[in-house]
């Protein structure tokens, strides 16, 4: 399979603090890469370098390269909205914008200039179905997105990201606040989605990584310690620290 994203020698600093050190990582198309590691390992910061959301932090500074289909996303004059439509993101906390379910889904497409009502409605149905939410909300698309349950909200956020028609989806601990049932619904959705998209999943839950990931990257204190197939990492990790983490000895 071809590489969708290539990360070369990536360093990220907040002020003088190094948050990520010399990360080299290839993310293949149509796979789920899970990123695991204890808190404060730079997992989320890494994810946010892939759609340049770290640009929001005034003190953030970056060196190295991130290539999306061979294109350097840190090159000057790159349109950030364009990048962020290609690389969609789902946050740890489900944050529906304070408007209706329908309005949440069509927010991105509308900003991109899609105004055709029919097209927007199609998109809403398609993405909500893909996020396994359609049946639960199809009769109340115009009620507020904030009134949904936590699990539903997170699936709404996934659907909202899908509506951008991205190529890559970044998920930042999407199930951290959810119950097991909601979690399994989201995992089910992810499994379907990888047929069309490249997915990067940051998770605190090693079992989740083992369940859904094709490949796994283990981060520790800003370093990428080990990268390999899920099977290899969870059966014969080559680094002692990886083994310690997945067997629950720290983290």
């Amino acid at each position: 399979m071809e590489d969708k994203i290539v990360v070369k020698n990536l360093n990220l600093y907040f002020d003088t603090l190094a948050v990520l050190r010399s990360i080299n990582l290839n993310i293949k198309a149509n796979e789920i890469l899970s990123i695991i590691g204890p808190a404060n390992s730079g997992k989320t910061s890494f994810l946010r370098t892939l759609n340049r959301l770290n640009d929001l932090i005034p003190t953030a500074r970056i060196t190295g390269e991130v290539l999306l289909d061979g294109l350097d996303i840190y090159k000057k004059d790159l349109s950030l909205p364009w990048l962020r439509r290609k690389v969609g993101m789902v946050f740890a906390l489900p944050v529906p914008l304070p408007r209706s379910i329908f309005e949440n889904i069509v927010y991105g497409p509308r900003l991109n200039g899609v105004t055709n009502k029919l097209r927007l409605e199609e998109l809403t149905e398609k993405t909500l179905k893909a996020a396994f939410l359609w049946d639960e909300v199809k009769d109340r698309l115009h009620t507020s997105g904030t009134k949904l349950s936590g699990g539903q909200q997170q699936r709404l956020c996934i659907a909202r990201t899908l509506a951008l028609e991205p190529e890559v989806i970044l998920l930042d601990e999407p199930c951290s606040g959810l119950d097991p049932l909601s979690t399994s619904k989201i995992e089910e959705a992810l499994y379907e989605l990888k047929k069309q998209y490249t997915i990067v999943l940051v998770t605190n839950n090693t079992k989740q990584a083992a369940r859904v990931g094709d490949n796994v990257a283990f981060f520790l204190m800003g370093d990428l310690i080990e990268y390999g197939s899920t099977e290899q990492i969870f059966t014969v990790p080559s680094d002692k620290r990886t083994e310690d983490y997945i067997t629950g000895r720290f983290g």
Partner: peptide, 17 residues
């Protein structure tokens, strides 16, 4: 809250949008 801004930007919105 900042997360509203992040959500909108991550959905391809420009700063002004």
């Amino acid at each position: 809250p900042d997360y509203y801004r992040e959500v909108s930007l991550s959905l391809g919105g420009t700063k002004w949008q």
